[in-house]
């Protein structure tokens, strides 16, 4: 490895870290503002001067100042380590998502499986947090999270498998290259399944049973304070970024659009941003699903739909091959 190579690795890593720290804040601020206006409010207006743009920075400063408390009865090592387990996988996942054929930190040959595998690890953070807190609400939250994530992992993998089958590759760049506008119709059921299970996997409303604040305080994160709590919040918003960009690359053609040679990355970011806004919109518009409705939706609607999509794609690919 030459010096230039090493420098490139460092530059790419720093770029991913910067994106990881900036994009979730951008989504968070968008959520503040969009949610406020959808409820007839203004949202944050003071921090930073112009329409409260620095609200989340101020929140971060506040979190840093707070006392870092570990409950006396908690399993201390696991409790302290859980936020890292929740946060780091999304950082790693962000590294393999291509913004354009050139703008990608690490172009993994099996990128689609990589992102799924890595985000599946992030779930362990929630489980560790819930179990190690020694709090009944945390434990209930973690159990709900585990049940929900097990159910929604399957339709998500099936939906991604359908796209990979259609594109004939597991590489995210390859999938976006193979994309054509016709996919919007053809892969629509798979796209819906993916979006729904992505929202469920992120434990965002209407699938926020694991953190249902009116029932179990804040689920697995009840006992967390300060920076560790902020890490969990950051991982949620980083998850929105990852899932939105992944949806863009898989179902919306990523960088494809006018002037895609020069502005490809911008197209990906714009489309991803629109998906993030949709995720926020769902949170504002819909009430929380009950646990049995949640499981019913996963097993009776999403899994059959994803399997049908997979069968359709398989038949089509075999027929046209």
């Amino acid at each position: 490895m030459t010096g230039a190579d090493a420098l490139e690795v460092v530059v790419r890593a720093v770029a991913v870290l910067a994106a990881f720290l900036v994009l979730p804040l951008l989504v968070g601020q968008t959520e503040h503002k969009v949610m406020a206006h959808m409820q007839g409010r203004l949202g944050p207006m003071y921090a930073g001067g112009f329409h409260g743009w620095a609200q989340l920075v101020a929140d971060g400063v506040k979190f840093v100042q707070k006392e870092d408390i570990t409950p006396a009865a908690a399993d201390k090592g696991v409790f302290r380590f859980a936020p890292a387990v929740a946060l780091v996988p999304y950082l790693v996942a962000m590294a393999v998502i291509p913004l354009s054929p050139d703008v990608v930190a690490a172009d993994a040959p099996a990128g689609a499986v990589f992102v799924l595998a890595v985000t599946a690890v992030g779930i362990l953070g929630t489980l560790m947090a819930g179990w190690a807190s020694a709090n009944k609400y945390s434990l209930l939250g973690a159990m709900r999270a585990a049940a929900q994530l097990l159910s929604y992992e399957l339709p998500m993998v099936l939906a991604v498998a359908s796209v990979c089958l259609a594109a004939g590759t597991l590489s995210l760049t390859g999938i976006a290259h193979a994309w054509s506008p016709w996919w919007l119709l053809w892969q629509l059921p798979g796209a819906v399944v993916f979006l729904v299970s992505a929202v469920a996997e992120l434990q965002r409303p209407p699938f926020d049973m694991p953190v249902a604040d009116s029932e179990i305080v804040f689920g697995a994160y009840t006992e967390y304070t300060g920076l560790r709590f902020a890490f969990f919040l950051l991982s949620e918003y980083a998850g929105i970024v990852v899932m939105s960009l992944l949806f863009t690359v898989l179902y919306l053609g990523g960088w494809q659009g006018p002037l895609s040679d020069q502005l490809g990355w911008l197209w990906t970011v714009l489309k991803g941003f629109c998906i993030a806004v949709v995720v926020i919109w769902l949170r504002v518009a819909w009430p929380r699903l009950r646990e049995d409705q949640l499981q019913r939706l996963a097993w009776l609607v999403l899994v059959p739909l994803a399997l049908a999509q997979l069968a359709l794609t398989g038949v089509w690919v075999v027929l046209t091959a």
Partner: peptide
């Protein structure tokens, strides 16, 4: 691919199931 499937299936699903059962 085998490595990724190992993570996806074993870490992401089997151990989550084990933890669920333990809880």
């Amino acid at each position: 691919l085998v490595a990724l499937v190992q993570v996806l299936v074993y870490v992401g699903a089997v151990v989550v199931l084990v933890l669920f059962a333990l809880m």
